[in-house]
Design a protein around this nucleic acid. Structure first.
Lengths: 188, 188
DNA sequence: GAAAAATGTTGCTCTAAAGCAACGTTTCTC
DNA sequence: GAGAAACGTTGCTTTAGAGCAACATTTTTC
């Protein structure tokens, strides 16, 4: 198993080294080009991805063609459309690589099998869901409560690396403003 | 244990009837007046609540004094500030009853003890987190993608009972619009 | 590495929703 | 059940941010 994923497990569970090696074969390394899609809107999501290097984003395109980004998964994070993975329904969001990336993929079947069978994976899954809950709760309050400058400052504080690695267009689609507005805000 | 909570467990797990009776003493019935607070912003959350009848809301007040509602827990749902419950940090949201309600409360300590010890409770917790994930993902896309009329229609579709049971002021604080705007939108 | 494509900036105009005020209606409270 | 307080509606004004256009800059492609 890739060292980065071992680290992820060790930091969150009491897992034995042998157990880590047992889990290893479930995860397959995959190289992803910049802008490549791992999932298209409308497809059923079949994999969970752990980002070793690079960055993925989850986004959806509305009826007017405007992109809407919900989440960035940088190195050391899991990223997938859990909603589609859990329900088995077609995803309402796409997964795209924003940089040349290396990910470890595990199939939906294997993942949920391990969640049931391996206490460490059960714990990891709980941990992912808890983190997602916390992140989203904060996002809802911070976004609904403030104007676009406020949201920009919030993102600068929470995820500064976004600004050095991603395009303004992408950041705008996360903040829920047009690239015009973002450009003007940054001039302050 | 209250019949409504038994039903909740039966619908989501393979639990034995004797096990339900074993879990019963952990849940204490509590009557809550309309507008009563179960948690104030800034307090550490110590309980998880299952709503037997009535309705709770989770909300926060921003620096300008504007209320911001994130979630309504109607009968048959768990409602608490999981973020504070999980992290042990002071809550950034308050829990308030919107109607005369009956809830079953379980302490944080007991709850997480059961999550570790009882597979059924582990499953229930996972289920709560998964549902929260799915609901919030949809909410983020639907809110960020559309204008206030679109959000109103979305809420009408997703949770119509909100409109018959809650005040316009409360609904406006959920939709992220002023009560003026909501009043005008409804005139269409 | 030159041409083409995508991205970023800035001026101007337009619009959805906020803010305020005034007034009607419902609901608490004792 | 009478008075007070909270809530809801509607007209008018203001404003943050969208939309368009034109141009500058960076990135991709062959």
């Amino acid at each position: 198993m890739h060292e980065a994923l071992k680290k992820y497990f060790r930091e969150r569970t009491e897992i034995q080294e042998e157990k880590l090696d047992e889990l290893s074969p479930y995860f397959k390394e995959k190289l992803v080009k910049k802008n490549e899609f791992l999932l298209r809107e409308g497809e059923v999501c079949k994999f969970n991805y752990f980002v070793v290097s690079g960055c993925l984003r989850l986004f959806s395109v509305n009826t007017e063609g405007v992109e809407n980004t919900r989440y960035f998964a940088f190195e050391g994070k899991f990223g997938t459309s859990f909603t589609s993975l859990i329900t088995g329904e077609p995803a309402i969001e796409a997964i795209q690589s924003l940089e040349k990336s290396t990910v470890l993929s595990i199939s939906k079947t294997d993942f949920f099998y391990l969640v049931e069978q391996e206490p460490a994976v059960n714990k990891i899954y709980r941990n992912i869901l808890e983190s997602a809950y916390i992140t989203t709760q904060k996002r809802i309050y911070d976004f609904q409560g403030s104007d676009s400058l406020g949201r920009l400052k919030w993102l600068l504080e929470q995820q500064p690396m976004v600004f050095s690695r991603l395009s303004n267009k992408t950041i705008a689609s996360y903040l829920g403003v047009t690239p015009y507005t973002l450009s003007r805000l940054k001039a302050q």
